[in-house]
């Protein structure tokens, strides 16, 4: 089956995860919530990070193909976006492991 179906669906799923995650993230960061230690927080932060990057970059990919029309350019931009997303994931994991 086409990956586009899953991508569209997963964009909504990560959207919901982000909404719940952001509320928690905002609360713990700005209203002196609980300290973020332990395996559960670690898992939460990891899923939150991945959701944010997936949601953001899949959104950008979707927007990109509506404005870039040459197939070759689309491939180049797609590559750039994927590399950037992977690099950001790397930075994110580095921060979480501090």
């Amino acid at each position: 089956m086409r990956k586009e179906v899953f991508e569209w669906f997963f964009l909504r799923i990560t959207g919901v995860i982000l909404l719940a995650g952001l509320t928690l993230h905002f609360y713990t960061m700005h209203y002196n919530g609980p300290a973020q230690t332990g395996p559960y927080w670690r898992a939460f932060n990891f899923i939150f990070l991945l959701s944010a990057i997936y949601h953001g970059f899949n959104g950008l990919l979707g927007i990109m193909i509506e404005y870039v029309h040459s197939r070759a350019l689309q491939k180049i931009f797609e590559g750039v976006l994927i590399v950037t997303a992977l690099a950001l994931t790397g930075i994110g994991i580095y921060i979480l492991s501090v």
Partner: peptide, 11 residues
């Protein structure tokens, strides 16, 4: 199959 590609439904 003819509508679920990138330039179909999801736009």
């Amino acid at each position: 199959g003819r509508i679920i590609h990138a330039q179909g439904l999801w736009r």
